[in-house]
Amino acid sequence: MKVDKKDLGKSQVELSIEVPLEEFDEHLKKAATRLGQKSTIPGFRPGKAPYEKIKAKVGEMNIYQEALSDIINHSFFQAVTQEKLITIGEPDIKIEKLAPGNPVVYIATVMLLPKVTLGNWQEKEIKTTEVKISQEDTNKTMDELKRMRAKEVLVDRVAQMGDKVVMDFEVSMNKVVLEGGVSYKHPLVLGEGRMVPGFEEKLVGAKAGDELEFDLTFPENYYQASLAKKEAHFKIKVLEVFTRTLPELNDELAKEFGFENLVALEKQISDNILKDKQNREQQKIEAEVMENLVTTATIDEIPEKLIHNEVHKMISELRYDLENQGLEMPKYLES
């Protein structure tokens, strides 16, 4: 096999590959067998006819075309190995010659992994922080466990902070209901701050059967960027109000979570919090090291096709995320 390499710049090369007949003869035989299985040749079962009979039936050029993909896959891998190239992505293939009794000649344009030369990244000091946990950290988690075991009782009174309210709600903007802006029998504990700022306060004083309407502005840092800092109209129907009683922190509560006593539960929580903080500190250090590596390194030019492919991938991922949030790309881009 003959391979000529031409450097195209920007981490791309062009390989002119000529594959002699003796190196792809086996691929022709396999291709002929596949075509023979699809053809009716008198005196032979499908796929059992000899090469010459199949060639006479389907035409030699059709056999070459059937074998072409296998010839290219096999020879391209050999060429890349021979030239000691580290390629990325799929090559662009241009067939130069495909004719019975002749070598197969094609040109493969391939992207190479850009060469990276590391700089003096070790010179920048990485500051580490001693990981500690406080009683406040443990108390926050213990309070969350208490909320998980809260006793709820349906009440016939107006809602107060700390109550759970079950409601139907609808969110609209310019009299158009937002995609994903409708929820039925939605539970919400007032005071936990899980909704748009001001929403929970509007429900204080409401009781089952009440219908409310009000406007609120989404915060600047709202997770849906297309809604950030925009005013929306909310329609609420209160269905139920529950009072919630939190349990005491004691051994009985610990046993509900599978621990022998409260001391064992608190120790496990403290250990988990410490491990989580240690992991986050380690991730922070690794991120700083990586940033130093990138900012001090010299990287060869990146192929335009690779950049195009990455941009396309990012756009596709953004579109997928928006659709999961009930949004459309055109509306997102307009905001």
Rank of each mutant, 00 (worst) to 15 (best):
K29I: 09
M111K: 12
P20E: 09
V294Q: 05
K230F: 09
Q12P: 08
N250W: 04
G193S: 06
P303D: 03
R34D: 01
D137I: 10
N62S: 11
N279H: 01
K2D: 15
R147S: 13
Q160H: 06
T40L: 08
R157L: 04
I93Q: 10
V3C: 02
I41P: 02
E192I: 08
N73D: 14
K115P: 12
D70R: 08
I269T: 14
K277S: 05
L145M: 11
D156H: 09
D25H: 02
G198D: 02
V104W: 04
E179L: 11
K57A: 10
K202R: 12
M161Y: 04
I95N: 03
E213G: 09
P91E: 00
H233M: 06
N73M: 07
T109R: 15
K10F: 15
Y106C: 01
E201W: 03
L216N: 05
A208G: 12
K48F: 12
I315Q: 07
Q224I: 14
Y222D: 05
D4V: 07
S270P: 14
T33R: 14
A297C: 07
G47E: 05
D156L: 00
V3M: 05
L227D: 04
V238F: 03
E26M: 08
D215I: 03
V158M: 03
A206C: 01
E14D: 06
Q135K: 14
I302L: 13
M142G: 11
A49S: 13
V238P: 03
S172Q: 07
I54R: 05
F44K: 07
D168Q: 01
S316A: 13
Y320W: 02
Q282Y: 07
E304D: 15
Q122S: 03
V105F: 03
W121P: 13
G47Q: 03
K277P: 13
T109K: 14
E252K: 00
L246W: 11
D25T: 10
F257P: 04
F259C: 07
N324G: 12
Y106F: 13
K207Y: 03
V182P: 05
I95Y: 04
M173F: 09
V263F: 11
I17N: 03
I269C: 14
Q160Y: 10
N174W: 04
I315E: 07
E192A: 09
L274D: 01
A159W: 01
R194Y: 09
P20D: 10
M329A: 10
L15K: 02
L333F: 07
